[in-house]
Amino acid sequence: MASDVGTNRVGSAMTGQVGRERRKRIVQFLLDNGLFIAFVLELILFAVAAPDLFIRSRTLEAILRLSGPAGIVLASYTITLISGQIDLSTAQVGGMASLMFAAVFQLLAWPLGVALALTVVLTIAVGLLSSYLIQQGIPSFVSTLAVGVVSGGIGYLIINLTKQPGMIRLVRPPLRDIANFEVFNVPFVIPLMFIAYAIGWVVLNQTRFGAHIYALGGNPAAAALNGINAVRIARIVLVINAVITGMAGILIAGRQLAAQPGVEGLGQSLTAALFAGVALSGGSGKIERTLIGLLFLSTLTIGLGILNVSAPVRQLINGLAFVIAILLDSIRQQLATR
């Protein structure tokens, strides 16, 4: 009798454990694939709410156009995040680059190549500054925060020096045409974004450098013990991220016909990456998924615009999306370490 009770207890404990395992698997499945489900649900929701306005090729194009420059940045941002660095200077670096470019290209009317080269040099300098600070033992989020303030200052300084009213108009061809350039009726930023992702995927999954980026983000101490040069990797990653952010800033400015300090639409990189399962602490995440995260957010922006939701509410929804993204990351971390 007593032994019966004993086995019963063991049995129920085991089913409890099986149940917990199953629950954990379900949660894991949802965390891994929830983004796809949420994206599909989002599409259905907007389609139902505004059938005639949402279901059009123009809407699709608007979503992709919005995603283009942001997606190019996100590809390199994801790699930066996986290497264990959080870059908070994106918006300011993008703005600074677009202002630099606009000042040289529009106001001084120098050739396109020279303007681009000068902008690249400036963004490289900014990336080097971030990586230098990180090398000194300062956490990346603080380093890039300070560098963001400096970059914003450089942007304002360009406006001050050129005596412009808060922004620089950017209407000189051929940039205007480049930003709106189309290949086979598709804005060229869209194929460019896919190319950026393809390169990012190959680097992360098929090269030594990518393997080292994952190792560095996952366990810096282990990476160092195995002869991986952390400083060098952080430097390369941050410089490339700054340069690409700058280029995207120029593309956005070209589309908006004006360069401003602080580019909107680049600040969602972190949210999109976290939605897609890239770990905030580095070391894990799949780059191809972040594209879905970005499309999800772009669709949200366009869809809410179609539904005529007011700006503060849209901003609130974006803010809450960020909160949800970090909560998801936290849940994922807890599951992984359990």
Partner: peptide, 25 residues
Amino acid sequence: ATGVILIVRGFALVFAVILSVLRAR
């Protein structure tokens, strides 16, 4: 210029963080 003030602010933060890290080390 506003820009310069912002840059000075940024570098003040950089300087402060470097001091803090140096002290910790």
